[in-house]
């Protein structure tokens, strides 16, 4: 094992512990604060049944959803940055958030949410898939080899179209629906249930494994498709697989938690600043760091102005941006 490889595993181990620690911390706090002993009691099934209900049915699935969504967004962001060779790329850059938000706003505006708690996430997921299909369709029609510049433009254009749809629906909706839509668009993990966690994990964990298996190809794609090809990569296959997988993970995340900004952009950069750009390190560490970041962000969103819950997008911006600037400054000193 080389020294670099040793450091990598140490980092994975440390961040893995941090994920568990952040989840256990998040589970303690809320309208009813619990001690560590009470949490452990609830988890082992021996504690107060009310505590048990709070921990097992409310806080734990919520924290685990934060793990899945935060990790997934960071993973998707790192992947898209490499494929598009663009440090500004983030999971929503290909219009996915626009499609999801338009679908969500439509269901809210038309009052369809009354049909059940599953309607909104399902609609957002479908909206995201429609946006992906549109972007890939447009890009492929223009250039058969899926030129990443064309793809980026297609993403911007499709995103702009959905922004128009959102504006139209909002203009025609009443005030409560507009408020609901705005809050959804800033992201929330409030809808977490064991079912959502399960669905999210089903998408995100296999996707993570696929992307990690492509890590070396992503290293090469990040320095150029021609070079990647000369170094033995099947460029078209890698591009389609990685873009497809990253898009699905993002769509699943948007469906379950709305549009949560900054995680997919900032976490991969922060990890790059600490361990470099090789994707075999970058991808797993981004997943773990994104998970920790979103669990803690959600904790702040719940308790900072309790009993009012602030949108998690606000927290990721307020906490993520200064944190990132600090890292950036340190890395340049």
């Amino acid at each position: 094992m080389s020294p670099a490889g040793g450091r990598q595993w140490t980092a994975v181990l440390l961040l893995g512990v941090a994920v568990v620690a952040s989840v256990l911390t998040a589970v303690r706090f809320g309208s009813v604060p619990l001690s560590s002993a009470q949490v452990l009691g609830a988890l082992s099934g021996t504690g107060d049944p009310i505590h048990r209900e709070i921990v097992v049915q409310l806080r734990l699935p919520r924290a685990l959803l934060a793990v899945v969504v935060g990790g997934g967004l960071a993973l998707a962001g790192a992947t898209l940055q490499a494929l598009l060779r663009n440090p500004l790329a983030e999971p929503y850059i290909l219009g996915i958030s626009g499609g999801a938000a338009a679908a969500a706003v439509l269901t809210l505006g038309l009052g369809l949410v009354a049909a059940g708690s599953w309607v909104l996430p399902a609609a957002a997921f479908v909206g995201a898939l429609v946006a992906i299909a549109l972007v890939f369709g447009v890009a492929t029609a223009v250039d058969h080899s899926l030129d990443v510049r064309v793809l980026l433009l297609a993403g911007v254009v499709v995103g702009t179209f959905f922004t128009g749809v959102i504006a139209l629906v909002l203009a025609l909706s009443d005030a409560p629906a507009v408020r609901g839509a705005m809050l959804w668009m800033m992201g929330s993990l409030g809808g977490a249930q064991w079912r959502t966690v399960l669905v999210g994990a089903t998408y995100t964990l296999p996707a993570g494994l696929v992307l990690i298996a492509l890590a070396r190809s992503l290293d090469l794609m990040a320095i150029g498709e021609e070079t990647a090809s000369f170094l033995g990569t099947d460029v078209e296959r890698v591009k389609r697989t990685a873009l497809g997988v990253a898009s699905l993970v993002t769509a699943a995340g948007v469906g379950m938690a709305g549009v949560i900004g900054f995680v997919g952009l900032i976490v991969p950069h922060a990890v790059r600043l600490s361990v470099g750009s090789a994707h075999r390190k970058l991808l797993p560490l981004s997943f773990l760091a994104g998970a920790v970041f979103l669990v803690l962000a959600d904790l702040i969103a719940r308790v900072a102005l309790a009993p009012t819950e602030i949108p998690i997008g606000v927290v990721t911006a307020f906490v993520g941006v200064p944190l990132f600037l600090l890292l950036l400054r340190r890395s340049h000193q």
């Binding site: 490499a82 663009n86 990040a222 320095i223 150029g224 070079t227 790059r272 470099g276």
Partner: peptide, 9 residues
């Protein structure tokens, strides 16, 4: 042509 968008060593 080769990009150096990200700082690899």
């Amino acid at each position: 042509n080769e990009a150096t968008a990200f700082p690899v060593t």
